[in-house]
Design a protein around this nucleic acid. Structure first.
Ligand SMILES: [Mn+2]
Ligand SMILES: [Mn+2]
Ligand SMILES: [Mn+2]
Ligand SMILES: [Mn+2]
Lengths: 221, 221
DNA sequence: TAAAAGATTTAAGCATACTTAAATATTAAT
DNA sequence: ATTAATATTTAAGTATGCTTAAATCTTTTA
């Protein structure tokens, strides 16, 4: 498996399962920074290898084999993130960037060593679940994006997902951290702004950021 | 720089500087497990990029630029080895194999993080010196291969270098470890055997192994 | 529903990194 | 000094992973 193939499968998996984005070659191409032609080409090759289903003009779909592979790469990615975050003084963005490289240079043995050393972690530092060695994702908490949270309700932050340095800086500056509790004061729907109170402070968050912050209702039951 | 290129330069450097082996394309090819034709091809391409000097039928020679690059890769390799050895329960062979992959997926930033975390180490767990960030190798101890050590003299083990699992098992079983002291009892030159005493025990070491054990004279001055 | 806009696919081509087989040069042996 | 053995290079070809430009299909809009 080349890094290109692994990134391709991983991206399809994330688009398919974790976000509700479409998985036509064009979307994958944009995410990976390659041309549409290259993505189509890759899709046909991987379908030969039974890693995904490709039908002209349709969205790409991972086969069970392709999904297993994608989950192995995601596992390695999140294990490295967890390890780097706990061991060194690195930011949420730095660990992601390094893991993006390391995930392709990690033997199965190495990932088991990390897994055991970290004492079988369930979540990475961004709040994303770590698949187990069989590619099974234990459980996904019932969450929604802050952008879609209800006014007046209290939530706990459980995921922060982005590749944008400014997003993480914003979070840092405003104490938007995993496990912190917030209250949604107001949704300015037309202007796509969310006003919340966090640790006593009131802040307004634009859609670009509130879409990367996942929350879960507190005492929802 | 692709992994292929990095491994190619690294191998030339090691053959040139650390061992007295020749650096014609054929030797490099054998070490990397590729065909002679592929090595020649690679040599011509890298010479275009001013990473090495290539003249038909001659040994390859790194340019200053090529040597700097090789040393950066070696630095990353040995930093990872040191880190893995100190952090996890991994053998001298395991750390080498993992570092062989990780070295190509390591940003300069990551290698500086490792370097600082490890408190600027000078040697890796095999006893090999770690180049600094400018590609400068601090100092190489005055050493020789056990195979060429003098009868009756006492030595300290300072390097163990091999890719052979059996070699490391042999070392483990016989307490042949870095910093341990030995006395060379006899060199059976014709049969290429070396008899040493180590921690009170007398053992005979065949050339295949004694050539991978580097020693330095004790109180040599 | 027909044209325009937008995506996707096909086609042609390039760079890297390899292969095997044939040609050529070097080195060792007689 | 030839010849034989060995090593190196050249040639031809393959797979991967990308590119741009042209052709084709799908979706939107009028
Ligand atoms: Mn990646
Ligand atoms: Mn993550
Ligand atoms: Mn390597
Ligand atoms: Mn080493």
């Amino acid at each position: 498996m080349s890094a290109s193939t692994e990134n391709f499968l991983k991206t399809i998996y994330c688009f398919q399962k974790l976000e509700a984005r479409d998985t036509k070659p064009g979307s994958i191409a944009k995410a990976l920074g390659i041309s549409n032609a290259a993505a189509t080409d890759m899709a046909r090759k991987l379908s030969e290898k039974d890693l995904l289903e490709y039908r002209k003009y349709q969205a790409l779909q991972l086969t069970p084999k392709g999904e297993r592979l994608a989950l192995q790469v995601i596992r390695k990615h999140r294990l490295w993130e967890t390890f780097l975050y706990r061991t060194f003084d690195m930011s949420l963005l730095e660990i992601h960037n390094e893991a993006e490289l390391l995930e392709h240079a990690t033997s199965d043995r190495m990932s088991e060593i990390l897994w055991n050393y970290l004492e079988k972690p369930s979540f990475d530092p961004h709040g994303d679940p770590i698949p187990n060695v069989y590619g099974f994702v234990d459980f996904e908490k019932d969450s929604k994006v802050l952008f879609k949270a209800e006014e007046g309700q209290e939530y706990r932050i459980i995921r922060l997902v982005s590749n944008d340095e400014e997003f993480y800086n914003f979070c840092c500056d405003n104490k938007i951290e995993i496990d912190n509790e917030i209250k949604v004061a107001k949704q300015y729907s037309k202007n796509q702004l969310t006003e919340i109170s966090i640790l006593g402070r009131q802040i307004v968050i634009p859609k670009e950021f509130s879409n990367n912050i996942y929350v879960t209702r507190i005492s929802d039951q």
